[in-house]
């Protein structure tokens, strides 16, 4: 239910401020109840992006959750404003976009608009919380340019395709070839990073 979040992980969202944006009152109530359950005391609920912008200008917000399917594409207009026009550090505010009818193109569009994560409706509490924890744990770089502003979309570090020169200083332009050994298990990787005593 909570994805790859290890059992026993603890979280304290009591002092976090979450801004919830949805034009559908019922959906907003349900979203609000989820964050209430997560222990968030300060839940700011708005039903329009204009109100959301006003809120972000006057309050420190730790997380924005926005319904992507609001009328006149306003959620995407909001994302453009937040990522490209809002002042620092507001422009870096993590955003979870909620998609009703989830299509591949919808997810791509949300990602390209600068969303940190996309959650498909119907929302489950486990999925929603795991995305919040991924954001809390992650150290994704934030890219800011004319054509794109948002969390690095290549956060899996898959690198650039072979034979293509990257545009970033840290991009490696060479073909590394295929693997010659089987993949290491996570515990093998852990042992390489932080050797531990084992019982023989």
């Amino acid at each position: 239910m909570t994805g790859a979040i290890p059992s026993g992980t603890r979280i304290n969202l009591e002092s976090s401020v979450v801004l919830l944006i949805d034009d559908n009152r019922m959906s907003l109530d349900i979203l609000n109840s989820a964050f209430m359950g997560f222990g968030v005391r300060d839940r700011l609920r708005v039903d329009s992006v204009d109100e959301a912008k006003r809120t972000l200008k006057s309050r420190n917000v730790d997380l924005v959750v926005v319904e992507a399917g609001m009328p006149e594409d306003s959620a995407f207009a909001f994302m453009r404003w937040l990522r490209h026009e809002a002042a620092e550090p507001v422009c870096y505010t993590p955003v979870v976009m909620v998609l009703g009818h989830t299509t591949h193109s919808g997810v791509t569009r949300a990602r390209d608009a600068g969303a940190n994560f996309v959650v498909a409706k119907p929302i489950s509490a486990g999925t929603l919380l795991s995305r919040v924890i991924w954001i809390a744990r992650g150290r994704r770089a934030f890219l800011k340019g004319d054509s794109f502003a948002g969390p690095d979309r290549r956060f899996h570090n898959l690198g650039i395709p072979a034979g293509i020169d990257g545009r970033r200083a840290e991009d490696l332009g060479m073909d590394l070839g295929g693997p010659v050994d089987p993949n290491l298990s996570q515990s093998e990787v852990d042992m390489m990073m932080k050797p531990m005593k084992v019982e023989l």
């Binding site: 730790d62 993590p94 809390a136 934030f142 340019g145 794109f148 545009r167």
Partner: peptide, 13 residues
């Protein structure tokens, strides 16, 4: 393209 590592309050949770 500028690369930034913003400090998020959520990290502390």
């Amino acid at each position: 393209m500028r690369r930034v590592y913003p400090k998020l309050r959520l990290h502390n949770t």
